Simulated assay, not measured.
Amino acid sequence: MSRTGTGWYPLRLTTPVKQHVFGGRYIPRYLGRDGMPEGRIAETWEVSDVEGDGAHIVNGALAGRSLRGLTEEFPEELVGRGWRGGPRFPLLTKFIDAYRPLPVHLHPDDEAARRLEGEPNGKTEAWHIVAAAPGATALVGVREGVGRDELRRALLAQDFDSVMRRLPVLAGRTIYVPAGTLHSFGPETLVYEIEQTSDLQQHAMRHRMEDGSPIPDDQWHSHIEALLDEWKPAPRPEFTPGLTLPSGEGTERRVLCAGPYFALERLRAHSHAGALVRAFDTAVVLSNVGTPTTVTCGPFSEPLGRASTLLLPAALGFVEIQAPADVLIGYVPDLNHDIRTPLLAAGHPAADVAALGEGLGGHSPTDQGT
């Protein structure tokens, strides 16, 4: 593969499916995802380089190659500007069906992951609400003034509402959840999640989320202490509707969230509009939450069905998405160039821009290109 991108094309990946106890059938029934196994479907991992659940390419000349192997061999061509030296492809994306509530849990930040877990990074994440039942809520963050001892007592009593913030959930809203934030969502909530590539977590439940089997008391107490060691009390994020950027007639571009690790946007085009067109110099995860469409990058075209995903290597540089379309795009941003500057230029207040995630209130040392 050359540095000009010769030979690269839109990549279709294997998609691990998790059948945890909180799942239902929203992904095949509501989203229309084909090829799902029988029974509950909790998560589909759209792009993953998590150890043991790493994706492989299933189309074209690179079929059979692992995402990890391509990332290691061609970091500039595949990941592009978003590459920070690895060791893994930087983005993990999922559809999550919280037919029942997820476990109350958290993920370590980078420092805690290295110090306590022996892993290179932790996991900050964001949820975009695809669909939710009337009255749906999420638990996100711990109330101000709650300390470690009070939180421990509440977790042991499984009395989460006494210490956690319960927020209303609406379709189309997005929340950026910093690592170390205690959280859960569901029931009857369908989410698209973007996050750092990690599966580290500590949860407070008495049962295993994989099969619902009970956790022995000593192990459960150990889990709660590990959770408290990785808990960060300060984050209290809120859901936002996102912020729009100028786009062509009959189209909409909305920035849903952004931080040092990822950004997520939603692009829409009505049937009478021309194709959605986007230039990029970093890998793009493109997931379809609307009707089937066609994705074209130069001479390469790929159909993109409902609830399906393509990974666009950075070397491709340009994509056209046939209207009508309703897609999500995730990428590693340059916060100044991609997010802060264009949103401020579009007239959005600085406070609204900062509310989209982390590092948007001013120059951040973790920004790309700063």
Rank of each mutant, 00 (worst) to 15 (best):
A132F: 13
A132I: 11
A132S: 15
A133G: 04
P134V: 11
G135W: 15
G135I: 11
V142Y: 15
R143L: 11
V146E: 13
R148D: 06
R148W: 09
R148C: 08
D149C: 01
E150C: 04
E150N: 01
R152V: 05
R152S: 11
R153N: 05
L155I: 05
L156E: 15
L156C: 05
D159W: 01
D159C: 06
D161F: 05
S162H: 06
S162A: 15
R166W: 04
R166D: 08
P168V: 07
V169Y: 04
L170Q: 14
A171S: 14
R173N: 11
T174N: 13
A179S: 09
L182Q: 04
H183K: 08
G186A: 03
T189V: 13
L190C: 10
V191E: 06
V191F: 10
I194C: 11
Q196D: 07
T197M: 05
T197V: 01
T197D: 04
S198W: 00
S198P: 10
S198L: 03
Q202A: 14
Q202E: 14
M205W: 09
R208D: 09
E210C: 07
G212M: 08
S213C: 12
I215W: 12
Q219H: 11
Q219N: 07
H221C: 02
S222T: 13
S222A: 13
H223W: 15
I224D: 04
I224A: 04
A226M: 05
L227F: 02
L228P: 03
L228I: 00
D229C: 05
E230W: 00
E230A: 02
P233R: 03
P233K: 03
P233S: 07
A234C: 00
P235C: 00
P235S: 00
P237E: 13
F239W: 14
F239T: 12
P241R: 11
P241H: 09
G242T: 10
G242N: 00
L245N: 10
P246G: 03
E249Q: 10
T251L: 06
R253Y: 13
R253F: 13
R254N: 13
V255R: 11
V255P: 07
V255Y: 05
L256S: 06
C257I: 02
C257T: 12
C257D: 04
A258D: 06
A263E: 08
L264V: 05
R266C: 01
R266L: 00
L267F: 11
H270R: 12
A273E: 06
A273G: 03
G274I: 01
L276V: 12
V277L: 02
V277E: 15
